[in-house]
């Protein structure tokens, strides 16, 4: 399975990458919004793990672009962000996010589990 992780905090991206690679998935990390879109178009992943506060292009814009892309619009996007405001969650869900998780609220294993669930659902 191909997974794109869009995350500017390298230490956090590494944790997710390590956990997912352990179960045999291909993981690509994009550390800003622009790279995220380029990588998504190149890779056409099975699932995208998306942070919201990103350099160059915000996660919301990335989400909007992805959902407007014929080839990518069906790829499930799991938002994993520390933005926890109701309005942020609502906005992301409206833009087409599959799930939304506040990082600090969940143990890493739970996040990994949710990503896997999204992968299964995307089949």
């Amino acid at each position: 399975m191909k997974i794109l992780i869009v995350e500017d905090e390298e230490v956090l991206a590494k944790v997710i990458q390590e956990k997912l690679e352990r179960t045999g998935d291909d993981v690509v990390i994009a550390s800003d919004g622009e790279r995220a879109i380029v990588a998504a178009r190149e890779l056409v992943p099975d699932v995208i793990v998306l942070d919201l506060l990103l350099p160059k292009k915000s996660g919301f814009e990335v989400l909007k672009t992805l959902k407007a892309d014929e080839e990518l619009k069906l790829v499930p996007v799991v938002v994993v962000s520390n933005l926890g405001e109701e309005s942020d969650i609502k906005h992301a869900m409206e833009l087409g996010a599959t799930d939304y998780y506040v990082k600090a609220e969940h143990p890493i294993n739970e996040i990994i589990e949710k990503i896997k669930e999204a992968l299964i659902r995307s089949k």
Partner: peptide
Amino acid sequence: FISLASHQLRTPITTMSWYLEM
């Protein structure tokens, strides 16, 4: 401020938690 605090403070807490879990 709420938004900033939530993001800026949560990131190091997340890092600690996740690495300690590992």
